[in-house]
Design a protein around this nucleic acid. Structure first.
Lengths: 340, 340
DNA sequence: GCCCGGATTGCAAACGTTTGCGCTCACCCT
DNA sequence: AGGGTGAGCGCAAACGTTTGCAATCCGGGC
């Protein structure tokens, strides 16, 4: 394959000159530039990225680490959408994207540090909702550019972009209260995920604000799967004081919850709202109300943050919260005691 | 950051020796090996991938090009699943994965060739169902290792892995015929995609085999979206001779078709079967019959093929077809004229 | 006619590895 | 005792770029 020397020879110049033409240096005469470009075209020349990265100490690529433990279960469009968002932003700057999907949480740190220390990438985007303090502090300690999709512990001085999970919980409860509900339960995700923690906090804040009862056991822990939602709803319904409205921390669990209701003919007795706006949930019977999360933008924003610090030299951690949006459909669109 | 010379100095050996220890050469004494490893650990040393790739002329990474034109519309788990499959295979061999998502079809070739010619990757996996003869021939001409997920034109001597789309069409018709249907229509995807072509061929073969009527206009072209399926079904129903069974080339279109039926109260009058087994379609009313495609395996197999030719030096194109599987649910699980 | 300065280009070192070749021993064989 | 052998290791070139510095050339001012 042609290298820079071949181009130089064909154009009758030195490799330095070719390199400068590629870099767009202004100190090269127009005629020479034309000759060099012509030679590059003739030889179908592409600069070797490895050689270039070696001397420049920049790879022009960023790593994306996707943790897929239990979250993988919800086969919703989160994962591809966030990648699309990242990709669209990277393309605009000519950056490449190396993807690392880790199955087990303990692979995460290794994969991440390997990409960086081997100089395969200039920085990383980490998508995960578990609190890996160790990884974050190692990244920060070595001054590696990175941004988290999700959020870090309050103290951590790291960059992240997240959606407003507390508001998500509040909006859901607010909506249900607006429809006349007073007995509202929550089916949450695994307790160690920040999404679960935040959504529950929002839920509880709204419950307090509206002075609702919150009997013990009204917040049950699911696992972000349909079956988990089914079981959780069954548990809630078997109580002496079942709720009339249920906020599920994810659409998959909401779907399971709806199944449980349907089996018991309680579809119009208990309102269900989820989170994520999985496209197909609009077609269920009843169509599922939900809180839509700006997944694409999460990815795009994370990429922009990272590129800013890489190319503009923006220093210091930045944290961005993107708003989510209530989507009302039939599963909650009726009023308690409305005689339906 | 530590480089190989630092390690060498600390261990009291030459860089060559360190390199050989890393490579696992046997000509190094156990004591020296131990000392070198100790030094590497002490310095937290990782070999620079760029320098290594430069001299080795191998990157230990492969590229994955995902074309997302209209296909993006079906936000089904195809895309993440195929990536998971590829990733799981790559990890076992320590290969990295650089991902390139192209929005427009004309970006595809550029992105692909750039990755290869810049020596960012050793080979590529191409997922797409459009017939880009030009790209395939350029790849083949330059002897680049690559495999296609989908299939090439019959003449092309390139490697690919695909599911048995012809059989998919046949299975669907066979199933419907087994339930007593004689008037069977098809809602197909865009005509220029190989998936559409193949599924239609299977459909027609089965129609011939069972000597069914196939009135003009019984095969209508959709676009792999829900709305397209809805319109197509509406068109079929407005005919004087509407079908009793419909084979949709994708679940998204099948979902749209079901909506059209539901609106007209014809759910149990017209059977609908899709393709892909999108998890949520099992929860629709009625649950959707479908043909399940081995998406994860498509990815994993493609990766294995590529790695074989990369690491084992396997020459020559190989073509692999993976079987799909009929999944019967309520949307077709009744007999024509069964008095339901 | 000579010196100066700017524009344009080339030289050579450097980036961090790998690897063919050759060197140095210690040991064994005759 | 001398030469042969092989194990263990180092030297230096090579991979394909970028870039600081120096060289050359040209015109203009004195």
């Amino acid at each position: 394959m042609a290298n820079i020397k071949d181009v130089a020879r064909l154009a009758g110049v030195s490799p330095s000159t070719v390199s400068r033409v590629i870099a767009g240096s202004s100190r090269i005469s127009p005629e020479t530039q034309a000759r060099v470009r012509e030679a590059m075209r003739a030889l179908n020349y592409y600069p070797n990225a490895n050689a270039r990265s070696l001397v420049r100490r920049k790879t022009h690529a960023i790593g994306v680490i996707i943790a897929r433990p239990a979250e993988q279960a919800f086969a919703n469009p989160f994962f591809p959408e966030v990648l699309r968002g990242i990709g669209s932003e990277l393309r605009r700057h000519g950056y490449d994207l190396v993807l690392s999907m880790t199955a087990a949480p303990d692979e995460e740190q290794g994969a991440c540090m390997r990409l960086l220390k081997q100089r395969r990438v200039d920085g990383v985007i980490l998508t995960s909702s578990r609190a890996h303090d160790e990884l974050l502090t190692e990244l920060a300690a070595e001054q590696y550019p990175f941004v988290l999709i999700g959020r870090a512990a309050p103290g951590q001085a790291v960059s992240w972009v997240n959606n407003d999970n507390v508001a998500v919980g509040e909006m859901a409860v607010e909506h249900l209260v607006g429809r006349g509900h007073r007995r509202i339960a929550m089916i949450n995700g695994p307790a160690d995920l920040t999404v679960s923690i935040d959504r529950e906090q929002g839920f509880r804040q709204a419950v307090d604000r509206f002075k609702l009862d919150l009997p013990a056991g009204y917040v049950v822990e699911g696992d972000f799967t349909k079956d988990g939602g089914y079981r959780a709803m069954a548990e809630l319904l078997s109580r002496p004081d079942p709720p009339t409205g249920v906020f599920c921390a994810d659409d998959a669990m909401a779907v399971g919850a709806l199944m449980a209701l349907k089996e018991r003919g309680l579809t119009r007795r208990v309102a269900v709202i989820g989170v994520n706006d999985d496209p197909l949930t609009a077609l269920l019977d009843p169509p599922l109300s939900t809180v839509r999360i700006p997944v694409f933008d999460l990815g795009a924003t994370a990429a922009r943050l990272l590129l800013d610090s890489l190319t503009q030299g923006v220093r210091g951690p930045r944290q961005i919260v993107l708003p989510s949006q209530l989507v009302v459909r039939e599963s909650t669109n009726w009023v308690v005691g409305g005689g339906n």
